[in-house]
Design a protein around this nucleic acid. Structure first.
Lengths: 329, 329
DNA sequence: CGAAAAACTGAAAAGGTTTTCGGAAATGTA
DNA sequence: TACATTTCCGAAAACCTTTTCAGTTTTTCG
């Protein structure tokens, strides 16, 4: 294993001083084209890469960002994280991954570590769309929140537009001629559940329909199955159900089919999340709302770039979601 | 925004020189206990963290490792990755995340980036248990492979013990008194599918049973459903099925129930992967093999530590898996 | 041709930490 | 008290790169 080349080696080989070599390599315009060429060739020959440690010591950007996830075992953080990683990798940013596991002590520890490493910025990936305490105060580096917004409206946050997503779902059902539309969703303690219910109610209202009943429960397939019984009992003529998640929807269609309802003929079902393994493998495959989490992550990353350049865009930005039509409607 | 404290700040506050402060903080034995205490307190007060850039400039370790995933959109890489991150976070390693997206050009690019940043080591997280080309040659830093082993037996690799896992599954079924055991699994192009089938056959043989038929197909719920028809047609008296994944198992139980078979009374079913959302939410919840991927990731990380210290343990290490008993057996 | 301007180059400093080595203080010995 | 040891501390160098500034060479223009 050969010793790693330093800029002095390059300068020496090219027959110039280190200062000139540095300028040539960094495209400064204080060096003759011919000299630059010589330096570049020398660098190529030694396969020289500047030592980022030395570079960052000067106070310049470290080309490193922190990716702080509160609890990434969960399913939603992952695509956001990947989208962000993708955007950073494209620019030559490196990503330091920190998983605080929902522990705020750990989170503090990681924040200190990231600062000690002089990251240029931090993305905080939330585990739910509920607002979380801001970490941006007095940090000295820009922070962007993805999925789970900061509770400080002056911070930069990106969340999926659940309000619009549920409106889209309901509009879709109305367009199909459905009139008796129930909503089965998860825990009301979740912002996501509340917003989706709210959006659905608004859309029903827009369509001149009576807002149907809302069934709050768990984010589980089991609850979907239980809810099927309740929904069918409450209104045997229900002709559509909008579910707050694909898990719930999968449970619902399963139980509804067992009770002799045909999906989508008797009851059209729309899910939420576009969780492929459930939505595409369910029988029938589920029409659902795709929150485009990778795009959200990527966008957040791009805005972190902007913020690092001093062009922050404060506020909670709602990212567009998408209706994916399959066979359940 | 507070300026980040340097060791000079600490030294000044403690009333000593930077040299002494450094020695005190690093546990050198050339400093009086009392002085050390003063320095430690000052450091605490300023929440001082040494600048890793400056440190690594001296040629010491950067306390940074690369986590290179080939295609982490997949489901299996994630827990491994989290396990590794967990182990590193505990030691004060930082983790640089790189997702090559299955593109070897990208992978090369990332490897170069990681080397330029002088990482102390690299973990390569595979997407399947199939062997992948080694990257370790001439790299200058230790590499450990997790989940997907390297094709070079001199490298350090950690894989789930699928052979043992499938034996355990079959033994469990045999213990329950089942005798006509079928195996439904995924694509034979996957090492995982082949090993699981092999382990199952071996275990059946050990039990003195005729190796049952193996149904090769997709890794999908749909295939599980189709397979149910085929299995029941091939042997109407089948009393147990070992599935190569929870997805397949979930499809199988669903279709088998529809055909009037009771699970587990008529047919006991064992899945593989312990993918909670499927295994726990299926009806009935699935007995399954948990490959302990987080543990695998953590172990790989610990062995990377060891390799960095010069204590590498070459070879492909098979990590124990675990039978999780639920209601399907 | 001479002077002014422009273009180019290099020495040196800065950034934070560790390590080495010399010096000072404290302790032990005669 | 004088000297030898041991213990503790601090000055300075080293790590690698970028940037500033001053010096030197080349070009431009009258």
């Amino acid at each position: 294993m050969q010793r790693i080349a330093t800029i002095s080696d390059v300068a020496h080989l090219a027959g110039v001083s280190v200062a000139t070599a540095s300028k040539a390599l960094n495209g400064k315009d204080q060096v003759r084209a011919e000299t630059r060429q010589r330096v570049l060739e020398a660098a190529e020959q030694l396969s020289f890469k500047p030592n980022p440690a030395a570079r960052s010591l000067l106070g310049g950007p470290t080309k490193t960002v922190g990716l702080l996830t509160s609890d990434s075992v969960g399913r939603f953080g992952i695509p956001v994280l990947l989208g962000a990683e993708d955007a950073f990798g494209a620019g030559e940013m490196a990503v330091l991954l920190c998983d605080a596991r929902g522990d705020s002590i750990r989170e503090q520890h990681y924040i200190r570590t990231l600062l000690a490493r002089r990251v240029d910025g931090i993305i905080v990936v939330g585990e739910s769309t509920d607002a979380r305490p801001s970490i941006s105060r007095e940090l000295g580096v820009p922070v962007v929140y993805a999925y789970g917004p900061s509770d400080d409206p002056d911070d930069v946050s990106f969340v999926p537009d659940d309000l619009e997503g549920s409106r889209t779902a309901i509009k879709h059902l109305v367009t199909l001629g459905r009139r008796r539309i129930a909503h089965v969703t998860g825990l009301a303690t979740y912002q996501a559940a509340r917003e989706r219910a709210e959006g659905a109610a608004a859309a029903l209202d827009d369509a001149g329909l009576e807002p149907g009943p809302v069934f709050w429960g768990q984010w589980s397939q089991r609850w979907g199955r239980q809810a099927a019984a309740m929904v069918l009992h409450a209104d045997p003529d229900v002709d559509a159900v909008f579910c707050g998640s694909d898990q719930i929807a999968a449970g619902f269609v399963e139980a509804a089919r067992e009770r002799g309802r045909r999906i989508p003929e008797d009851i059209a079902v729309v899910g939420y999340d576009n969780w492929e393994v459930l939505a595409a493998e369910s029988r029938p495959p589920l029409t659902t709302i795709d929150p485009n989490l990778e795009v959200l992550g990527r966008t957040a990353a791009q805005h972190l770039f902007a913020a690092i350049d001093g062009r922050a865009t404060p506020g909670v930005h709602r990212m567009p979601v998408q209706l994916v039509i399959r066979d359940s409607t």
